[in-house]
């Protein structure tokens, strides 16, 4: 991963020096262990602050929309798929974005590690497939593969789908056996169990909308939850209003979500927001043979009409 950091810094440095781009979006070291922040470098000096490691969990495609500037982005597989979605949805032009492709070996599940260590982490470092974590109580070397985020274990595109330059060798494409196993588990429940499951899932939601703000495809100028005329959904802590928010946000992401996991990373309450979006990913995959962000020439399936539409009510 350190080689990635060096490479990203040198690419970013020369792009800024030559004036090819106005800013380079990447990650910089956060203020606590196991944290990186999205960061826009505008000068060669700032480019030296860029880093890349297994804690670069946020989706950088979120920071490139609605700009007249030329922007370089360090993009993992998922970020690159969201850049494709932005290009398809006219949020940025392809020639406006310089994609520094970062082949990804998965990001580490910080929440799980903190839970297992039981106290604040004091140090985190990685060396190839191993990560060493130190907390106030203990110090351990762990296998990175065993501590990947859930969305990384079912990732179909760790390599960027589109790039102008690579920051490292492409990684082998994984064979994911059943990426929708978690959805199938819920599908097997009866209606009452399902409803109870989702009621419990969203019970802790404080409606901070961090999931929405971290999501690259949630870019509406006024989100339906913020609208006051008409007011689509109540703004308080009412259980049904909370469920409506999660339910509708997920539906707006249908056929556009790349399962990057930024929503869950951003959630301060640890709500598994992807339990909603994953179902829609499964549906679009099964009904339309579609996975978001793979093709710059095709509109998302819910955005187009085809005579082959699998739903028969519309024919």
């Amino acid at each position: 991963m350190d080689t990635y950091t060096e490479k990203i810094r040198s690419i970013a440095g020369s792009l800024l020096k030559e004036g090819k781009v106005d800013r380079v979006i990447g990650y910089k070291k956060g203020s606590i262990p196991m944290a990186t922040n999205p960061f826009a470098a505008r000068t060669v000096e700032q480019a030296r602050e860029l880093v890349f490691n297994s804690t670069c969990v946020m989706n950088l495609a979120n920071y490139i929309t609605d700009s007249s500037e030329t922007i370089a982005v360090a993009a993992k597989g998922c970020d690159s798929r969201n850049i494709v979605t932005h290009i398809v949805e006219n949020k940025i032009k392809r020639d406006q974005v310089y994609i520094i492709g970062v082949p990804c070996s998965g990001m580490v599940d910080k929440r799980r590690i903190i839970e297992e260590f039981g106290s604040d982490l004091t140090e985190f470092s990685e060396n190839g497939d191993e990560i060493s974590v130190k907390s106030l109580d203990k110090e351990e070397v762990l296998k990175k593969q065993d501590y990947l985020r859930d969305c990384c274990t079912t990732c179909i595109k760790p390599n960027p789908v589109v790039y102008d330059e690579l920051a490292g060798e492409l990684v082998p494409e994984p064979e994911v056996k059943n990426r929708f196993a978690s959805v199938e588990k819920i599908e097997a429940m009866d209606p009452d169990e399902k409803y109870q499951y989702f009621t419990d899932l969203t019970a802790d939601c404080i409606r901070c909308y961090a999931c929405r703000n971290a999501c690259p495809i949630c870019y509406c100028p006024t989100c339906f939850v913020d609208e006051s005329g008409p007011q689509w959904v109540g703004k308080g802590q009412n259980e049904t209003d909370i469920q409506t928010f999660h339910f509708l946000r997920a539906f707006h992401c249908a056929g556009r979500c790349t399962d990057c996991g930024a929503c869950e990373e951003a959630c301060p309450m640890g709500i598994k927001v992807r339990e909603f979006t994953k179902k829609l990913n499964k549906d679009t995959s099964e009904l339309f043979g579609w996975d978001a962000g793979l093709d710059q020439t095709k509109r998302p399936p819910l955005d187009t009409y085809s005579p082959e539409d699998p739903d028969d009510f519309i024919k």
Binding site: V183, I186, E187, M189, P191, D192, E193, K194, Y195, Q196, Y197, F198, Q243, F247, A250, F251, A254, F276, K279, L280, D283, D311, F313, I314, K315
Partner: peptide
């Protein structure tokens, strides 16, 4: 949409889509 509604536990038979 129907599938997602079903997924959160509302019976599928409650939701109808039709083109008339």
């Amino acid at each position: 949409m129907g599938n997602l509604i079903e997924h959160i536990g509302i019976e599928r038979e409650r939701i109808h889509f039709s083109w008339i």
